[in-house]
Amino acid sequence: MEMRADDRQARLASYEGLPAAATGTGRDPVNLPMIRHWCEAMGDTSPAYRGPDAIAPPTMLQAWTMAGLSGHGDRSGPYVELLRLLDDLGCTSVVATDCEQEYLRPLRPGDTITFDTVIESVSGRKTTRLGTGHFVTTRTDVRADGDLAGTHRFRILKYAPARTKAPAGRRPRPVVNRDNAGFWQGVAEHRLLIQRCTGCGTPRHPWLPGCNACGGLGWDTFEAGGEGTVHSYVVMHHPPFPAFDPPYAVALVQLAEGVRMVSNVIGVPYDKVRIGMPVRLEFAACDDELTLPVFRAVAA
């Protein structure tokens, strides 16, 4: 549904303060079998929940109001409408985030449960780990035989699921142009070519049209021997990119010939990469079309 952001927020906020639905009635009065099933599931062996003076575990408060598999019948009302509106806005998933309960008096077998729920608030659009959506907070007064027995504040996030883990994509392609085509041609032939100024003899990397030392435009190349050391490195944790599996180390490798290049260090866990670590050039085939120079840690 297309809706301007402020229109959307105003429409969502218009539900604040409205009763969620007409007064509800618990499907069953408070009863020992449901209490026993609850205690069995929770592993709760407290004697307070057994015998002639049994009370219900206070944390069961919401359970007495649940519609269960057969539902509450027609529970249409503002809450159902609000959830439908959020569905229409793309927020089709739901997760409970908060539950605050206050217990005013114990519930005992035989108590008849009624409850009233008010929509307390609808948040602005929030981006969470799960996706982007709106928090909806309700407050329910639970009555036992007509007396207020507890209150129950409940918050859900209605959200549009974030795309789960990106498909394992291909490694990004290098941008090959006239200035660096020779470098990539060398890599394809498993030769790491270093550019060298024909004016002053200074080697340079990455490939550039001119010399940083003397400004000379003439150049030739020579092949690197493959020996190097880790000059510096970072470990990438976030964000994840397709074809990369964080965490991984990205190193600035100092080649024996005097230039430095950014690459990956392989053959060692990401957290064992160290400055000064000796490494040796290898060529890694990423897929059918792409080969990259990488550096393998050399056992000291």
Partner: peptide, 20 residues
Amino acid sequence: GRYITDHFGPTAVLRKVAIR
């Protein structure tokens, strides 16, 4: 709730439980 009442015993009365 069980964690708290297990510890404080069967006479403990829960007043409020707020979780996130």
